[in-house]
Design a protein around this nucleic acid. Structure first.
Lengths: 252, 252
DNA sequence: CGACAATTTGACTCAAGTCAACTAGGGTGG
DNA sequence: CCACCCTAGTTGACTTGAGTCAAATTGTCG
């Protein structure tokens, strides 16, 4: 917009993590067993975007599919529009996670992705990945694995939506978030939800009122403590019991 | 089991379709724009299995992932076990469709696949596909597309489970089956359901009683005619209206 | 022909949705 | 700095679509 503005704080931030090798997330988003040379080649195709404000889209449904994305900081949701025009959230994406795989083989994105808070992404042009995948043995397999993991997660969610009660769904989501934070060596018992109650409900197939009621019920039971978006898991075992399922660190 | 049994009828059948190029389904299951030479190379890695009886498994959850499969005839369902031990059906697979992609990058299958009626599959060893994908340009992309299509279908189903009424779900499934039969140039308005009411319910997140009730309700409304597993779609437009959604030929 | 599995139908229940009112935060502009 | 507004979240009262339980019917296969 304004090309003459001086260096912004986020530029500073971007500079700090200008290379994948320096990025603390690379073991999470790039666990390809490749040598330094391969890593460098992979790294050259990755573009680091400017920060996005809450509500800004990374891509929209129907726009040409060109890249996949890795969350650098913040959080995103991906969603698709149902025939009658309202959104269905397909997933929440935390730092180190890849999103945008849904539209992969297709001409256009079937989903849209939007920032839930101030966030940053790495953009990875897919045609370059595709070309590189033919040369770096591990990369093709890694891509297959990413896609297959996405399928597993969607199927995990299908089970949740098709068979579980409101309480079980919400417990499972809390545990999924918790596990994913743990993977990043952050607190697994105290965290801030990046999404609204409405988003949680939309994702889990529940209305906001139900989400709200279940959260207070869990709080009254002493399993968690809720204060707005701040969650404190007091009794992880009981929460796991309520979820009634081993929640994969993958999930949502 | 009994190595001395004489040539069985199905061996005869297999001989009839001993090559992909002869198989009437190849435009459906192998729409890779490859030349004859490539097709031949691809063809050499495909193994044609013996027919499977209703209830026989192609693979089970937890067994090593080695191959993906194409339905040659009959029908299959894939399912996973929920933590509390009952099954959740992830999809139904008709001739020309690929299944078994779920466990792709992983060591073991997360899902199981079982024949819904007497059926036959082509087995495609995945390591061979992987190797070949590095050489045949279109094949890698085709594999990505298959995986991504699987994701789209799961997401389609997620929308169905999270937002739709019992009537909409069942209408959508009927339309999905109808569209997939049309693609094979079979009747899109009269067909036989390969799965039980229980399977339909399991897949759509409904109990059998609800499936049964909705089917009779749709029949009373004159939208479809039901006689056991035989379905006759009398008014496709009304069924589409009830489904409330453009159902992709993909689906289920 | 039985025996068992699948399907249908009815009566009743309940978890989650709907509707509505109220409260708490989070800016914005005067 | 505060009054105001708007959105997000909570809570309560009531409704309802789909689940549960149970019984009758049909279909299937040895």
């Amino acid at each position: 917009m304004a090309p003459s503005v001086p260096a912004q704080p986020h530029t500073e931030l971007a500079r700090h993590e200008a290379h994948c090798e320096d990025c603390g997330l690379n073991l999470i988003c790039l666990p390809v067993a490749v040598d330094d040379d391969d890593l460098h080649r992979l790294e050259t195709i990755i573009e680091r975007g400017r920060p996005l404000q809450r509500g800004e889209h990374v891509f929209r449904s129907g726009t040409p599919f060109e890249s996949i994305y890795a969350v650098r900081s913040g959080a995103f949701k991906t969603y698709r529009l149902t025939p009658d025009g309202d959104e269905q959230i397909m997933g929440f994406h935390l730092p180190g996670e890849i999103f945008g795989l849904g539209g992969l083989g297709h001409e256009n994105h079937s989903n849209a992705a939007v920032a839930l808070e101030t966030s940053a992404v790495c953009e990875i042009p897919f045609d370059r990945v595709e070309a590189l995948a033919r040369e770096i043995p591990g990369l093709q397999r890694h891509m297959f694995q990413l896609l297959s993991k996405e399928i597993s997660e969607d199927e995990q969610l299908l089970v949740l939506l098709s068979k579980r009660s409101a309480e079980e769904r919400i417990a499972a989501l809390m545990l999924s978030l918790s596990a994913r934070l743990r993977r990043r060596h952050l607190s697994a018992t105290r965290f801030r939800l990046p999404m609204s109650r409405g988003d949680i409900g939309n994702y889990l197939g529940l209305v906001v009122e139900t989400v709200s009621r279940v959260l207070t019920r869990l709080q009254n039971q002493g399993v968690i403590e809720v204060e707005g978006k701040e969650i404190h898991i007091l009794e992880p075992e009981r929460l796991t019991a309520i979820a009634g399922t081993q929640v994969q660190s993958a999930g949502a």
